[in-house]
Design a protein around this nucleic acid. Structure first.
Length: 109
DNA sequence: ATTATGACCGAAG
DNA sequence: GCTTCGGCCATAA
């Protein structure tokens, strides 16, 4: 399957409940190794843009729940502001583009 | 086949 | 807090 990365990411990110977050790095370590984070970010972005999603079945992944390891929220194709809003709407507190109380929101696999 | 790019990470200054 | 840098990975060109 061409979307195997996306499939795996989707499987994991679907487990993250509303109001919780995970990180690119955490997914990376879960799926492969710590250096996989970068590829994951790229895959997610491209999935949103559906460059290589099959047009028939575009998987909707709650990408906004995937953030950076350092507490910043990372990127979002539709826009940084939107990702921020989505997270805040789920009860996550963000100040100065930094997630406050980061570890308490982190979902553990 | 080779090179460049990026929604990353961790260590170092 | 900051910036810079080296590292690995999948994909696009």
């Amino acid at each position: 399957m061409k979307n195997s990365i996306i499939d795996k990411i989707h499987h994991l990110v679907s487990q993250v409940p509303k109001g919780k977050i995970t990180t690119y790095g955490a997914l990376a370590r879960k799926l492969r190794n710590k250096f996989y984070a970068r590829a994951i970010g790229q895959a997610l972005g491209r999935n949103e843009n559906n460059y290589y999603s099959n047009k028939q079945k575009i998987k909707k992944i709650p990408c906004h729940r995937v953030v950076k390891q350092d507490g910043r929220i990372g990127g979002y194709n539709v826009g940084f502001a939107k990702k921020k809003r989505l997270l805040q709407a789920e009860g996550i507190t963000i100040k100065k583009d930094m997630i406050q109380n980061f570890s308490s929101f982190l979902h553990l696999f």
